[in-house]
Design a binder for these strands. Structure first.
Lengths: 199, 199
DNA sequence: TAGAATAGAGAACAACCGGAGAACAAATCA
DNA sequence: TGATTTGTTCTCCGGTTGTTCTCTATTCTA
């Protein structure tokens, strides 16, 4: 169902309010947020959203505006942000969904990051490529993982774990491997797929 | 149905706008983008695109210009087979569909091939990777294309076309470029995306 | 060269969108 | 219970936006 601009505004505000308050707003409160002076005008939009299946029908109840729970999710897995060696993952403001081949999905929770930098270039992972990551807290030796170093820097590297140390290998002849103590490294996910767009 | 030049312009702009805004443009906004001063002129083109099945019919709705989402974007595009330099495309027995990110689709007809061999390794295209190809019979210099050589061998190479010759460059330091006469090379498609599965 | 196809300008029209405000009824609160 | 808040319904309005015309210019083709 297609929403008009104002309907979209109102839906966004309602969705936003969900996180901030435990009670739905009254019409008057919503009108104030929207800069309206007439409840009647708002009501028409609320009705349209209900018609569209985005709001539960509210039969006269006060504070009865409620979002429909299972708005059928679009297909795809979330694109979370960028990962660059030596920095935290840079989250993107608006969560977008990205369709990926089923072959890359493992049934576990997965997400997409965009790679910044050339540290994995010898593995054919270039600056600007997208990687599909399976959320996990452990990995096998030789896996390419998203690792959190000292709870602050996120990086994409090939990992080798030994009883007394953890080594992160970049795939770039001009960069050196880094050695850490096991406690300093936290695995956040394992590389499952690569996506690259040409112009 | 074949689009006129202006119709193609408009379609491209609409497709481009999809990524930048969450609401379709109004006629006036589109006119401004196109340098038109009359909504009536635009309307004729919109109608033609609707007729061609590329736009949803908009029954008087404001901001009602909406692209018809192709089945391909929902279900995936066909995986046709393997391509190895020096051999015809090896078709797969049963056609499978593969979901790919919308960003790789151009609205034109696309398909997926699996790459065999290392001839494009310096471009980060490895043996076993999947490539998304847009079906076309022409390309710009520097594009990576699926080219049919002498009507029998298919190959994935970077192309440079000159009036008197066509050069196919592999992206592998240990391989040499090949030079052909224009008539010997037939372009079958242009590289739009790359997919790689890890384990 | 005539005709068709493409492309645009501009005017007039109708529908849609968003809003105001009054009156009413139901829910909630004191 | 009575008063107040809150949701509902209704009519009305104006600007925006899509639609339909007619008219003109340019390009391509038979």
């Amino acid at each position: 169902m297609k929403l008009t601009r104002r309907q979209q505004d109102i839906y966004d505000i309602l969705r936003d309010n969900l996180d901030h308050f435990d009670q739905p707003p009254t019409y008057d409160e919503l009108c104030q947020l929207l800069g309206l002076s007439s409840r009647g005008s708002l009501h028409k939009h609320i009705q349209a959203l209900t018609q569209a299946g985005l709001l539960e029908p509210m039969e006269g109840l006060h504070r009865g505006i409620r979002l429909v729970e299972s708005v059928e999710a679009e297909e795809g897995i979330p694109f979370l942000g960028r990962i660059a060696a030596g920095r935290p993952i840079e989250a993107i403001s608006q969560a977008a969904l990205m369709k990926v081949p089923d072959e890359m999905l493992t049934g576990k929770s997965c997400y997409v990051l965009q790679v910044t930098g050339d540290s994995m270039i010898d593995e054919g992972i270039f600056d600007g490529d997208y990687v599909v990551i399976e959320q996990r807290d452990s990995a096998d030796n030789g896996d390419i993982v998203v690792a959190l170093v000292n709870n602050e820097e996120a990086t994409l590297k090939k990992i080798v774990q030994q009883p007394d140390k953890v080594i992160l290998y970049p795939a770039n002849a001009s960069m050196a491997a880094m050695v850490y103590k096991p406690g300093e490294i936290q695995i956040q996910g394992v590389l499952r797929g690569l996506l690259r767009c040409y112009l």
